[in-house]
Computed example of a mutant assay.
Amino acid sequence: MVREHIPQARTAHEPVRTCIGCRERAARSELLRIVAGTDSNGQPAVCPDPDRTAAGRGAHLHPTAECYELAVRRRAFSRALRAGAGLASASVRDYVDSSAFNRD
């Protein structure tokens, strides 16, 4: 008995990540990657990485004020990035506030 090979349609696979604010899973393209870095004063800080090219451990966050506030309240930045306590997150807040994702 000869079986014909029927090619299956390939679907594009989009990596899925979890938002550290709301803890919901979403496609990587819908989330903002954040990394540990330094602020303008040289102090440890959380930095947005919209191009997803920065080296090191990253975490993901929906670029909304609600998810940002949840992440701050839960102290999720330090935990997700495995950094010590006291990471400033003002640069992420500024990015979220000015983000094109929030504009309709």
Rank of each mutant, 00 (worst) to 15 (best):
I6G: 01
S29M: 12
F101Q: 04
S40A: 13
P7T: 05
H60R: 02
S29Y: 11
G58H: 11
V16H: 05
S91K: 06
L61Q: 02
V92Y: 00
G21I: 00
C22T: 02
P63L: 10
H60F: 15
R74W: 01
A45N: 08
T53M: 13
S78K: 08
L31G: 04
Q43N: 15
V35N: 09
L87E: 03
A54G: 06
T53K: 14
A54L: 03
D39H: 12
A59I: 05
A36M: 01
E14R: 09
R82H: 14
P44K: 03
L70Y: 05
S78W: 07
D94M: 04
L31Q: 13
E24P: 00
A45T: 12
P63T: 09
R17I: 03
T53H: 09
C47N: 08
A27V: 14
P63Y: 12
T53W: 01
L31P: 03
N41S: 13
E69H: 06
E4L: 11
P63N: 15
P63E: 15
G56Y: 09
L32R: 08
R82Y: 08
Q8A: 07
A80I: 06
A27H: 11
A12D: 10
G21V: 01
E4M: 08
G56T: 05
H62F: 09
R73D: 15
E66S: 14
R93Q: 04
M1F: 13
I34N: 04
V96I: 12
P15E: 05
A36N: 06
G56L: 07
G58Q: 05
A80P: 12
V35K: 01
V2E: 12
R75Y: 10
R52V: 02
A83L: 01
S91H: 05
M1E: 09
L87S: 03
V16L: 14
P50Q: 08
R3H: 11
A54M: 04
A27M: 11
S98L: 09
L31W: 08
R33M: 05
L81T: 00
A88L: 02
T18V: 12
R57I: 10
L70H: 06
R93G: 00
A9P: 04
V72G: 02
S89C: 13
V96R: 03
V96T: 02
Q8L: 14
R74E: 07
F77V: 06
S91C: 05
G37W: 00
V72Q: 10
G37P: 04
A83H: 09
R103Y: 13
H13E: 06
A12N: 09
G58K: 03
L32F: 03
P15H: 10
A90M: 10
S40C: 05
V72D: 06
S91G: 06
T64G: 11
S99L: 08
A27L: 12
R103F: 08
P44V: 01
Q43G: 02
V16W: 11
R52Y: 00
G37D: 07
Y95L: 04
H62K: 07
A55H: 01
A83Y: 02
A76L: 08
S40P: 07
S98Y: 02
R57Q: 01
H62T: 05
Q8C: 00
A85D: 09
A80D: 13
E69R: 10
P7Q: 07
R3C: 07
R33E: 07
A26H: 14
A76Q: 06
V92D: 00
A54R: 11
R3D: 10
P63F: 03
R73S: 15
D51K: 10
G56P: 05
P50E: 10
I20T: 13
L61F: 00
E14Y: 14
N41T: 14
